[in-house]
Amino acid sequence: MSIEIKGVHQAFHGKVVLDNLNLTIEPNKIYGLLGRNGAGKSTLLNIISDRVPARSGAVTMDGQSVHENNAALGNLYLMSEVNLYPPRNKVDQLFKKTANFYGGFDTAYAHRLAGEFGLDLNARFGKLSTGYRSIFKLIIALCVPVDYVFLDEPVLGLDANHRDLFYQELLSAYGERPRTFVISTHLIEEVANLIEHVFVLDDHRIIINGDVSDVLAKAYAISGPQADVDRYTAGLNIIGADHLAGIAVTYVYGTLDNSRPIPDTVQVANQDLQKLFINLTNTTKEVSTNVN
């Protein structure tokens, strides 16, 4: 019971977009899929949902290939930035169509959510603003009877209140009926506590794949006078550095050297997910090659 991505490789016009990717997406977990623009997140999601078949490699759900597989495709929903709904259809009409194709839909919940977000059921999809298109697709994502929900930039165009409401509804829906959510977003701080497991996609490869708490336990920020910090972090996996008025902060990803005493002048703290992400995916290549 899981979605397996095995050796998925994709290139467009000779440019590699996904470089031999391997991933497992387990049932009933909330995942974060993080990556900078152009890292390949959307392509990965398009391959998983068979919108774009992979050049090589395979995506399976419970051991069966998802390619051209109604049972697998009907058990996942991808909310994407691209709009695939007919612009002339009305919101409620599209709810009904979704119910027809997916063989079920929580219409009562969809109507309640539409009320909470202020989405007009009689509005035509094409006339909705970017924010309300997101809201419309989010509502479908929460109401379709699938076990795997993929959300690509789910809060695009949503104001702070609606984002807050969405995260709350996501966790409430998850509490009611546990299922897998994979959230791909640039707003890392907003989802950092929401997700259980994190994938970081950088330069077309997965560079982080682990439980958020495990990953953050290995992400240190070591600060103090430059010389002392340098001495303490020498030889460790340094992923970034900051300098603030005479104080140096060096970011380390990996285990510290427990045999070294921590100097009195040096402070060891943890990085948060966003800081870790920025450090790991900064374009300075000599730094990011230190990963793993």
């Binding site: 977990k29 966790l171 509490g175």
Partner: peptide, 15 residues
Amino acid sequence: STTEISKEFHINPAT
């Protein structure tokens, strides 16, 4: 409950 705390503070229920 786990769900209540999870919803209120946007924290994963497993956490």
